[in-house]
């Protein structure tokens, strides 16, 4: 205790105390993602499902003697990642609210913007780990393909390819994170994310089929669609621009509104 017996000083002596370093906040946020059964199982499921998808893909490809490249396996690995990483993003935010731990968290770090930044960096690190894992599994799949197939094997794995991999995972995770902040409720955020990710593309498709003008603007507002060139790791200047405009709508805007909401929310 900083006070001495009989002290009646009415001020706190904060001269010896530093702010909690940002790295420590990130460390704690990372720990929170794995220190519950729910969190651990989510991570295990991500790894297991990715491996499963690749095994199935490999099996089909070999059985039907198809010619596939590294990208095809990467796209396969992306399917489970794209479903579960957003859930991880959602839960890292919403569990603080549904489990009401935000009260304790904010009593140890009252700056909510620092807290959010630490949490976001934590999820980015998770995305990075997912990339490494996804990559390892993809390389494994492609290696097995090389071993068992007589077809030509491609290993187009440049830095740009890696960057695209990472970008995709960051997008998935961040979209979940944004929806989590926006709704502050696990179930609602996951449902909304799945509507966004599985129902919306159908609606976009329908819209473009029915309305010519919509077909023209769709590439600029459909974030799911705009990510396809990244999966292929072959992006033109125009496609970058489309990624930017659609990303502003579906990623940056929800992130901003979500941050605003968390900064203001009364924590109950």
């Amino acid at each position: 205790m900083t006070t001495v017996p009989g002290s009646t000083a009415m001020t706190l002596d904060i001269s010896q105390t530093e702010r909690v370093p940002f790295s420590r906040l990130v460390h704690v946020e990372l720990r929170k993602m794995v220190d519950t059964r729910a969190g651990r199982w989510l991570l295990i499921s991500i790894a297991a499902l990715t491996a499963l998808v690749l095994v199935i893909q490999l099996w089909v490809v070999l059985a039907q003697d198809q010619t596939v490249g590294f990208n095809d396996f990467a796209a396969g690995a992306n399917i489970p990642m794209n479903i579960l990483l957003p859930v991880l993003g959602v839960m890292s935010v919403t569990s603080e609210w549904s489990q009401r731990t935000a009260m304790v968290t904010f009593s140890l770090e009252p700056s909510r913007s620092r807290f959010l930044a630490a949490k976001y960096v934590g999820t980015l690190i998770m995305a990075l780990i997912a990339v490494v894992l996804g990559l390892a599994l993809t390389i494994g799949a492609n290696g097995l393909y090389a071993a068992f197939s007589d077809n030509q094997v491609t290993w187009n794995l440049g830095p740009f390819q890696l960057f695209c991999f990472f970008l995709l995972y960051v997008f998935s995770m961040s979209t979940g994170f944004a929806f989590g902040m926006l709704l502050l409720n696990t179930a609602a955020a996951i449902v909304v994310y799945f509507v966004y990710s599985f129902v919306l593309p159908g609606l976009f498709e329908l819209g473009s089929a029915l309305m010519g003008w919509f077909k023209d603007i769709r590439p600029w507002i459909d974030f799911n669609n705009a990510q396809n060139p990244i999966i292929e790791a072959d992006v033109t200047g125009k496609e970058w621009a489309q990624l930017l405009t659609s990303g502003l709508i579906w990623l940056v805007l929800p992130l901003l509104i979500g941050v605003w909401r968390v900064l203001r929310a009364e924590v109950k």
Partner: peptide
């Protein structure tokens, strides 16, 4: 207050913990 947990101990709701 920097690192407020070192200066102010707070217990607002004992049930507000991850189950």
């Amino acid at each position: 207050i920097p690192n407020p947990g070192r200066h102010v101990g707070v217990l607002l709701d004992a049930s507000a913990q991850h189950a």
